[in-house]
């Protein structure tokens, strides 16, 4: 297989509140022989909130990020669902609207850049599944996760709206997603079925609507617990922050104690590939990862 090479858009969270995500991403890329070039020039995607304030500005900034992947001639991979949504949405809007693209390029020209539309944007989860391949990954598993019931938590912004996401996620159906389940199985684990796996964690309303956010987080963890999961796994650091850090608030809002260790997708893959807990940053979790 030709060596896979991508431009990595880390997003902000992986450089701040979830350092373990960046660490584990780089660790498994190294193990699998995938080359990741960090896009250090990239700025924040706006996380859908800058978009609420100033839509045009968010288009310009996201287009600038993609420009740097285009300069490298590489596909951009994201490791945050919300980065994926906002970047893919920008790309789609510019690629389908020449007038808007021209308007954005007038601004980008001021800093010597041009958005062409030549780089694809895909989440690392889907790059692993579609480009590296589940069979190839399964062949590299050194420590099968066979003793664990693992609850996949997909995160909204990788699967909805499907019309946009299907351009890069292999046609995943948001009502019956399978990618993360398939990845769990490839790692030797047992995938757990529960109703909340493709539902919202509440992250984006956390400050302005804390009760709504806490109940959604609680429902997700409770669903996984009731389905007998030992731990959860998610491809989204924002979901991770809700599920890992805020289970106290969720328990209070729900009137029931909810708590499960939550791994980032690359941490789960890393465990199966035989990476050490330190290489995967498991010490950075607020809810203790007590099974390794």
């Amino acid at each position: 297989m030709e060596k896979l090479k991508y431009a990595l858009y880390t997003g902000c969270t992986a450089r701040e509140s979830t350092p373990e995500l960046l660490k584990s991403t780089l660790a498994i890329a190294d193990k699998l022989g995938i080359e990741l070039i960090l896009l250090d020039e990239a700025s924040c995607c706006g996380a859908s909130h800058l978009q609420d304030y100033d839509d045009f500005l968010s288009l310009v900034l996201n287009a600038r990020n993609i420009c740097y992947a285009e300069k490298l001639g590489l596909t951009m991979v994201t490791i945050c669902n919300t980065c994926q949504l906002n970047t893919a949405m920008t790309k789609h809007r510019l690629d389908t609207n020449p007038e808007l693209k021209a308007k954005v390029n007038v601004k980008l020209a001021e800093v010597g850049l041009e958005y062409k539309g030549s780089s694809e944007v895909t989440h690392f989860l889907y790059a692993l599944i579609q480009d590296f391949g589940l069979k190839n990954l399964a062949a590299k598993v050194e420590v099968p996760l066979s003793q664990f019931n693992i609850a996949p938590f997909y995160g909204c912004h990788n699967i909805r709206p499907s019309e946009l996401q299907n351009l890069s996620n292999g046609g995943e159906n948001p009502y019956t997603p399978t990618s993360l389940d398939d990845l769990i199985i490839a790692c030797g684990g047992v995938n757990v079925h529960y109703e909340e796996k493709n539902k919202c964690c509440g992250f984006h309303a956390e400050l302005q609507s804390p009760r709504t956010a806490a109940i959604l987080t609680g429902n997700a963890i409770a669903g996984a617990m009731d389905a007998n999961a030992d731990w959860m796994v998610t491809p989204c650091p924002l979901c991770h922050l809700k599920l890992d850090v805020q289970n106290h608030g969720a328990s209070k809002a729900l009137g029931r104690d909810v708590k499960l260790p939550v791994l980032h997708m690359p941490q789960m893959v890393g465990l199966a590939l035989g990476c050490t807990p330190a290489e995967l940053g498991l010490n950075h979790h607020v809810t203790k990862v007590d099974f390794v």
Binding site: S17, T18, E41, S43, L57, L61, R64, N283
Partner: peptide, 27 residues
């Protein structure tokens, strides 16, 4: 758990001047 970056360690985008310029011209 090492999840909070202190203000003096706050990471910055490379070529930040481009971002600043774009915010000024595109807001």
């Amino acid at each position: 758990k090492g999840k909070i970056v202190m203000p003096w360690n706050m990471p910055k985008s490379k070529n930040l001047d481009e971002v600043k310029k774009l915010i000024k011209s595109s807001s």
